[in-house]
Every structure is written in structure tokens, then in C-alpha cells.
Design a protein around this nucleic acid. Structure first.
Lengths: 204, 204
DNA sequence: GTTTTTCTGTAGCGAGCGATATATAAATAT
DNA sequence: ATATTTATATATCGCTCGCTACAGAAAAAC
């Protein structure tokens, strides 16, 4: 393929797309999908509505980019922890510990965008709600697979209920996100995470 | 005081107020505060907008009645369990078990209205969001008090972290509500509840 | 230069929002 | 019967929603 590197014709964009996208992440993260209006977005992104639509498409397309950007910058710790640690236990332990920190970092919205941004949506936003729900289910499925792998390898007892344990972890993480949104501080979330790990089965 | 029992003058109401309120509970429970429009309500309640406003005041006043009715009919199990059982442990154990059942009962919305109905609200609904948040915090505070009472009476070890344990329980309950909304069945929630109780400290 | 392409600013679209003015209907009070 | 009171039905109100038409501005292509 030819590496085309010709200058882009026409009037250049007067704002930084990445910066604007980050502001959109913040708005959606704070207020959720439906409660964030185009008017909110144009204000926080510092651009006009036509510029927003030209650069990002409609609200739903912008939100799709926002979710991807959120995953890249903030939400990837769960996948990373589960993938990088040598056991399910250490992966989940690390993920919970990191969640306590991530969900309460000062200077940015609290909790998890994937968990909270598309709850209570009107039927018109069902597509968005379904996509985030699918991500949550995929996350729990990933934990469950990791647990099953450890059961198979003998790192976890043979009678471990992988389905229940994975959903328990998902439940705690989602609960921690809401606690963070309700004002719980990092210390409290870390205590929750530490308590939650007491459930983990001992290695056989 | 005189027991006035005179007949009410004027044209009588043509709908049953309680039945209409129950339909409003269902709508708000399903879709949340903001995503439920007056148009949704008039349709599900089977009355016209002026009748709704005459009988219940504005949307926010109706929602206040809805929350009270929800607590009376569906959401009271946590308080009851903690108040009626002889120990914090048994109270929480029962509350978690009942939550698994309540949150997945067929034929009605899933999860907990207090937990889910006012997330992701626009600034205009801050008052509603704050009131439900206050109820959540009060619920956790109630659990914490019950735990402290057991620590004082010797039913729990003296070094029990009541704050952390109460927030852990709150986290699990809120996580279970979201899991229910995401489709988890009663069996899964009961397994989560059973796992969660493994954290509970042994009696000294 | 002129043309072409792309972005920006203003202004406003149709639709739905929460809420209500007005007129009529249906009950009791006198 | 007539007056009074309350509820309902119709038809909106002003506002914000997501979104876009249109004209002017700013760049590269020629």
C-alpha cells in the first residue's frame, strides 16, 4: 500500500480532537449517557454543535468513542490484572485493590463509567445500555474463565463454583463503584476489597 | 376531636388512587426517575396529566410517594431483618438471602428502586438523587450500628471493623441489585449471598 | 489569483419534556 | 331547581432535547 501523506485540504479543525474527547469522557462519566446533553457536551468540550457532529457523528457514536477511550485510559485495570497475574486469586485481589484506588482518584469522576453510565435509560437508549451490559457480562465471564483455568490446573479446589465466585467478584466491584459514587473514600473501598477476598477458596 | 365523616363534595375521582400509585411505582422502579416521563406515567397509570397533577402534585412529589410506597410494599426487608433477628450476623444473612429473592421475583421490576432509580441524574434532579443517596447511607449506617451493638455485647470480636463490614455488606447488596438488573437469576444471587457471608467474623 | 474543500457560527428544525389554562361533566349543599 | 365544588378531557404552554441547514471563513490545489 502507498503511504499517502498529503496535506489535508480545507479549513483545519480549530480544536484538538483528543482533548475534546477527553472532556466528553469526563462528562459522560460524571452524569451518564442520557443525563449528558449535547448542550453540556458543547460547553465542556469547548466546541459548537456542528463541530461536534462533524468530528464525532451523533451522540451515540461519540459515546462509543468515549467508552473506548475510557477503557484505554482508565478502565483497563481489571483485564490487565486478570491477564498479568499468575493466579485468579492474585488477579482478582489486585483488581479489587486497584478498583479502590481508581474509583476514588481525586480530580476525576468517581466509580466506573461502564458500570454506571447507562443505568436507568429510556427505551430510546436501549442500544447503549445493552452494549455496556454486554461489557459487564464479558468482564464477569473473563473472571469466570480465569477461575476455571485455575480449577483445571489445580490452583483452586475442584469443587470451586466458578460461576458463583465470578459473579460474587462482579457484584463486589459494582458495589464498590456505587459506594465510590455515594462518597465512600479510598480507605473504605480498600477495606471492602480486603474483606471480599476472605471468601476466596484456599489452594488445595 | 370531632370525627368528620361528611361526604366529599364535587365530582368523585374516577380512578383508584392506590392502584395508580402502584403503577407509578412499577414505572419508576423499571426505568428510573428521569427516564420515566409524565407521558409514560399517564399511560401506565391510566389517567390524564391533569388528573395526575391534581392527585399527586408534580413529578417529584409523586416520586416521593412512590418511594414511600416502595418501602412499605417491597423495600422494607433490610430494616426488618436487621431489627428482628437476634444478632447482626443473622440479620445480615437473612437480608442477603431475602434480597436474592426480592430482586428476582417474577412479574415485577428487578433489583432495588432505592439503589437504582436515581443514578445518572441531571442537575435538575439533584434533590431526588440526594434523597435516595441519603436512604442508602442510612441503611448502611443501620447495619453499622447493629454490628457495633454486637461488638459491645460480645457477640462479635472486639477488633471488628464495623465501618468496613457495614460498607462491605452495603456493597454486596448494591452489587446484587445491579446483577439482578443485568439478568442474574435467583440462584446466582443466593450463591453470591452465601459466599458474602463467609467474610463474617466468628463469634469470640 | 481562482477554485475546491473543509470547518465554524448562527439560527432554528421537529419532537418530546414537565406542567397548565380552559371548559365541561358529575357529584353534594342549599 | 340552583349553586357550589371537584374531577376530567382537550388543547395547549414555554422549554430543552438531539440534530442540521445555511452562509461565511480558512486552508490546500490549481
Amino acid at each position: 500500500m502507498a503511504t499517502k501523506e498529503t496535506k489535508q485540504r480545507g479549513r483545519p479543525r480549530s480544536f484538538d480532537r483528543e482533548t475534546a474527547l477527553e472532556q466528553a469522557v469526563r462528562s459522560f462519566w460524571e452524569q451518564g449517557y442520557e443525563a449528558t446533553s449535547i448542550s453540556d457536551l458543547t460547553r465542556t468540550m469547548g466546541i459548537s454543535a456542528p463541530s461536534l457532529y462533524a468530528a464525532f457523528g451523533d451522540k451515540q457514536a461519540l459515546f462509543r468513542e468515549v467508552v473506548a477511550e475510557y477503557g484505554r485510559l482508565h478502565g483497563g485495570f481489571l483485564d490487565r490484572a486478570v491477564a498479568e497475574e499468575p493466579t485468579a486469586r492474585r488477579g482478582v485481589e489486585r483488581a479489587l485493590r486497584e478498583a479502590a484506588a481508581e474509583y476514588t482518584l481525586p480530580g476525576r469522576p468517581r466509580g466506573c463509567l461502564v458500570i454506571s453510565a447507562a443505568q436507568n435509560t429510556a427505551p430510546a437508549s436501549a442500544e447503549v445500555a445493552d452494549s455496556l451490559r454486554a461489557m459487564r457480562l464479558a468482564n464477569i465471564g473473563g473472571i469466570e474463565s480465569r477461575i476455571r483455568a485455575d480449577v483445571a490446573s489445580g490452583a483452586l479446589p475442584a469443587d470451586t463454583d466458578a460461576h458463583a465466585l465470578a459473579h460474587y467478584v462482579g457484584s463486589v466491584i459494582q458495589g464498590m463503584s456505587q459506594q465510590a459514587r455515594d462518597g465512600a473514600d479510598r480507605t473504605t473501598l480498600e477495606a471492602i476489597a480486603a474483606l471480599a477476598m476472605k471468601v476466596w477458596p484456599d489452594a488445595p
